[in-house]
Amino acid sequence: MSLSAVIVAAAAAAEDAAAESGGLPQLDMSTWPSQLFWLAVTFGILYWLMAGRFLPAIGGAIEERRGRIADDLDQASEFRGQAEAAEDAYNQSLADAKAKAQGIAADTRAEVDAEIAEMQAETDAKLQGQLEAAEARIGEMKEEATAKVEEAAADATRAIVERLIDEAPTDDAVARAMTNIAR
């Protein structure tokens, strides 16, 4: 029912169309000169503007952008090269400075070591001299003290013998006696 209604309506519309169209307007040759004239005018003007003005401008803009991008890329890679060179130079100078610093440190250490050794040797020598002098003095004092003790012992011996036998012994006898005792 509904489908047939559509068909009826369609048929009606198609009949209307057929009734109203008195041949194709496209085949009415009297309109052709005007169409061709205005086509030539509009198409001609458009072609003239496109070829002479618009397309070169757009193409130029596209080319310029491509050129600019290529330039920028070149420049970027150049800058990167420069940055890498700078980094290399920096590393190189850093290594140089380190080596130099180590050299200076080693030199200084050697110098200081030498100085210390010298000073130590000097001090050692000085102390050695003082030590020897002190030892010599001690030895002297020891001998002196020993001599004084012997003398005192001899005096004492002599005094004791004089008291005992009322006769003073000779120095030789005292010395002999003391030597025997000491032995």
Binding site: T31, S34, Q35, W38, T42, F43, I45, L49
Partner: peptide, 19 residues
Amino acid sequence: DVSLTNSALWMLICTGAII
């Protein structure tokens, strides 16, 4: 006959819009 018609008008409108 090069009368300005509705066809010519729309050619001018289209071309004018493109330009």
